[in-house]
Nucleic acid binder design. Sequence first.
DNA 1: ATACTCCTTATCAATATGATAAGAGACTCT
DNA 2: AGAGTCTCTTATCATATTGATAAGGAGTAT
Lengths: 294, 294
Amino acid sequence: MDVKPLRYFSEVARHNSFTRAAEALHVAQPAVSMAIRKLEAELELTLFHRQDRRVSLTDEGSRLLGHAHRILQAVSDAQLEMEELRGLSRGEVRVGIPSMLGSYYFPPILMAFRHRHPNLKLSVVEAGTGSLQQMLEAGSLDLAVIVAEQVPDELEACSFLREQMMVTVAREHPFARQADITLADFFAQELVMFPQGYFHRRVVDRLASASGWTPEIGFETSLLPLIKSIVTQGFGISTLLEMVLRDDPDLVAVPFSEPVWLDLSIAWRRDGYLSRANRAFVDFVLEQAGTEKS
Amino acid sequence: MDVKPLRYFSEVARHNSFTRAAEALHVAQPAVSMAIRKLEAELELTLFHRQDRRVSLTDEGSRLLGHAHRILQAVSDAQLEMEELRGLSRGEVRVGIPSMLGSYYFPPILMAFRHRHPNLKLSVVEAGTGSLQQMLEAGSLDLAVIVAEQVPDELEACSFLREQMMVTVAREHPFARQADITLADFFAQELVMFPQGYFHRRVVDRLASASGWTPEIGFETSLLPLIKSIVTQGFGISTLLEMVLRDDPDLVAVPFSEPVWLDLSIAWRRDGYLSRANRAFVDFVLEQAGTEKS
DNA sequence: ATACTCCTTATCAATATGATAAGAGACTCT
DNA sequence: AGAGTCTCTTATCATATTGATAAGGAGTAT
């Protein structure tokens, strides 16, 4: 029992005519005759009562008609959804974004993506790089934004933005007048940091262990506005991505004397298939980053 | 989107393996590969993620899987019902039977038919020949038992029983000792009759008009037991099928001097298709009548 | 390293499908 | 009554689809 013959059958039943059905189906009329004959042979039942030039459903035929409608409906539903998935008018993007980027870089991108593909469901999780990687590997996320240098083997990553980590101080702080800050100077200060598991913290820890200093962490929070507020009031200093500081009049961003650049990437499981929707999101992010640069 | 590829798809998804699916489907493995590839091309979507020798559904594939299951289920439902109709483990027989036969000849046949095809729905309507013909033509009945000689053109009829109409009198009635009764004698008596529209009445009216007599009808009812009771008590005479009188000790059946035979037939719309179930019923009745005779 | 497992590609035969052309039965309109 | 038509069937043929066999290649296990 195949779909095409059932479609023919349904049309013949609808029109009570082979000729009319053939027209509606855009096939030659004998094709319809043969298809119905074959279906009848397959089922070993007479589906239509051919009386002179009048065609009508038999009892058995009308029983089949209900099934045929159900089947054709189900097929058409499937085709519709596949078409939607293909055309990105359906689908889901589940992406994880670290706090710092989620607050400063991504909002406009997310809005623009949503505008481009209004029917895609967009789930955004904000969490530290560590959690994001775990969620990615566990399959509860499809995509995550991470810092490129620490890409594990099982993830595939695509860098879309290179951004400098800047020492962040209040306007009144002595550092604010320096052209750059050495690691020694930086680590001599009391720091306000993200907790373990955030790329922010990882970067600083790496800088510390590479240079032999021990960071003195006076305050630890994953709330970026709180960090900024604390630094603004002079209770500590921090280091943040340049983008976070660009529009803040109360904070001063000073580069390290050996500039620290971070490659921000969007990553996914290497062995996992990216759905159309997710791939569209990756492409969109890369495209936005590209146009922004130029 | 065809049924076979969907079945292949569903099996591959079930086993996460082309080879295993091919085994389960009893086809060569490349056939499965090709079918899936073609389905993917048709939908312009990747359904499986082929990673090394591991196969897994993509997001789009798992969306399709639900539809595939629904479609395959619907197809299998249809096949099942068609099979049931073919094998007469489903279907409906709607048959109309005149009172006289419904009470005396058909009950055992109906029971036997029901025993032979326990899953067929059997709807039996008891009514006069006139009503039955109307219902047949209106399509509210598929089959009806009628008297052969008055078969209209639009009905097809098959005779299954030839039965004599007997003058019916009480044991004490003078007619009871006669070998036969002339029409003149019969019409001289007060009659107990079925109403208009019953073959019983039609036959008597026909006899009357053919012989020029006018029947004197003292009592009219469609209740056969009532007729018998009235005749038994000597308030009138009637004429009934032989089968009705065979086991009644209080009534005597005497033939007309020119015997009146009725051909009982089972009829259906000439232009209407007889469903498997109805045809089975006709065959069954004919078969029963045949074996009974022999 | 070698054999094995599993999916893909290539080729070929069998089958199925649909188009065209011709035919047959029945209704309709003169 | 007979021509014309309408509609389904049959016949024939070209094309497309399907599945089997054989060979290839990538990855894994022993």
